[in-house]
Amino acid sequence: MGRLNASNELAACHCRMCRNWGGGPMLAIDCADKMKISNETSVTRYPSSEWAERGFCTHCGTHLFYYLKPANQYHLPIGLLEASASFNFTHQIFIDEKPDYYEFKNETHNMTAADVFAHFEEG
């Protein structure tokens, strides 16, 4: 992928698109605009909404990132990173779209879809 300077805060997104994309909630870290892709020819960007793109490897199909266009912000699935790195599970978004068949035991800051959209309108 290239160079990375990311937050150590891990988030879960429960929106329908993330669950459809990965088969479950997306567990990701926020890399803001610090991620640099070294070989964009190996990456396909799928415009999943007016405000976001999802990137995957053209060769193997691995999910690489969720890119929030208005904020120029990349979110990387945690599984792409070293397991030995220290991350803190701090928040969950689209909690109102989370199905009842799973639950995380961690205490986190939870945001509904309305909370998420309001947050980005403020910023």
Rank of each mutant, 00 (worst) to 15 (best):
Y67W: 00
P99C: 09
V116I: 15
E40Q: 15
V43H: 07
H75C: 06
C15T: 08
Q92C: 10
E53W: 15
I37H: 09
E107L: 03
D96T: 03
A32Q: 03
P77N: 09
E107M: 01
N88S: 10
T90W: 08
H63K: 14
K36N: 07
K34V: 04
S86V: 06
Q73R: 11
A52V: 14
Y74C: 04
L10R: 02
S7R: 00
C57Y: 07
H91R: 12
A85F: 00
A71S: 14
F104T: 07
T62A: 11
N20E: 08
G123N: 11
A85Y: 00
I29E: 06
I78Y: 06
R19A: 02
K34F: 11
H14A: 07
F94P: 15
C15D: 07
K105N: 14
G55M: 02
K105P: 06
N5P: 01
S49G: 12
M1W: 10
F65D: 05
K34G: 07
S7Y: 02
T108M: 04
S7N: 01
H75P: 05
H109R: 11
N88W: 02
A11N: 11
P77L: 00
C57A: 09
Y66S: 08
G24V: 03
G123I: 15
P25K: 03
Y46Q: 02
A11L: 02
T112Y: 13
Q92L: 13
S49R: 12
H109G: 10
A28K: 00
I78D: 07
N110V: 01
Y66E: 04
Y74D: 05
C57N: 05
D115N: 09
S84Y: 09
H14T: 01
L68F: 04
E82C: 06
R19M: 05
G22E: 00
L27S: 06
T90D: 01
N5K: 11
D115M: 02
E122W: 00
G123S: 13
E121F: 10
E50S: 10
K69G: 04
E9C: 03
I95K: 08
T62F: 06
